[in-house]
Design a binder for these strands. Structure first.
Lengths: 180, 180
DNA sequence: CAAGATTGAGAGGTCAATCTTC
DNA sequence: GAAGATTGACCTCTCAATCTTG
């Protein structure tokens, strides 16, 4: 076992171009920087982790301010078990309430409470301030429009009511291996 | 305790413009989508979580392929304790090696091993393929350049050898409160 | 006693097994 | 028996306390 030296400087396979590298690195740094501060500020000022804020903001935009657990997980791109436990916590704090879907009693709704809407609206003041201060304000109006356009191109629109994405990925991997 | 209804539809304070909303939402979605798949593929094909890949890629670009623990944590924007534990794991697997800085015996280096460089180079094939497939390939060359430019504007350059950012944030919060 | 790093205890996340309903 | 959701056991991360060196 020896440490690497300049003679073990193996070449990087098929590297990114300089421009690709800047775009990807900038993307990761910007995300870590902004969401890190956002999480710290929301916890410090509202005792509300960014993950929980995300659940509230997703619910407030849904019809009747409620979603089935699976749909909520799909939109937030998190696993069923994490959604279940996060909803536990938010329900314990009175910000939402579970109920059974009368049309399919396997399925459960998470519905915002009045306290949940109020909590969200208060926290949004901090949220918007941080996102503006650390991200949007550094950009011109033109750049904001470009960014929205670019990123909507780059990612598929909401994969609505999708299953937990790990399943999809695993399936794709298996078929690509089988295809050889 | 009652669930929210249309009469409790409190207004959002100082909302984002439509363009701001698209940019920020697209940013979050793109990040979750790409890094989620990246982590799954790196684990499945190389048994290497994205966090550990990040440590290797940071080290390989450093002088002599090594960094002090604190500097490594600052560049990756993670806490000292997490860095220490991640480095434990990578050292256990033989991809890097700790050593004490002879000039300041409080400080420890993490240095890539030959096995670590080889592991990284292999994993980079997957890494680059996923980032291209899910992100870069959806953009034109012009858009990649724009994105790099925009994001380097938005985030402060590397806060080199910075302390763990939570401390900075806490200090800023205290002073802003004191300033009222 | 401050700086750099690590560690123990507790909080939070993940995978697989389980429960209920279709 | 499959779908939706939850739970138990295990693993990882975080916070504060600790160890070592300057």
């Amino acid at each position: 076992l020896q440490t690497a030296n300049k003679f073990s400087n193996l070449p990087e396979p098929d590297p990114f171009s300089e421009a690709e590298f800047r775009a990807w690195r900038g993307f990761l740094r910007a995300h870590a920087h902004v969401t890190g501060e956002l999480d710290r500020r929301l916890r410090a000022e509202h005792d509300l982790p960014l993950d929980q804020f995300g659940i509230l903001i997703t619910l407030v935009g849904a019809p009747e301010m409620r979603l089935r657990m699976g749909e909520l997980g799909a939109r937030r791109l998190v696993s069923p078990s994490k959604i279940s436990r996060s909803v536990d916590e938010l329900e314990r704090r009175g910000f939402l309430k579970r109920s059974t879907d009368p049309d399919d009693r396997r399925s459960h709704f998470a519905a915002l409470t009045l306290a949940g809407v109020q909590k969200l609206r208060t926290a949004q003041v901090t949220h918007h301030a941080v996102v503006r201060e650390l991200f949007l304000d550094a950009l011109t109006g033109r750049q904001v429009e470009q960014l929205g356009c670019i990123l909507e191109t780059a990612v598929p629109g909401v994969v609505s009511s999708a299953v937990w994405p790990a399943a999809e990925s695993a399936a794709a991997k298996l078929s690509s291996v089988a295809g050889r």
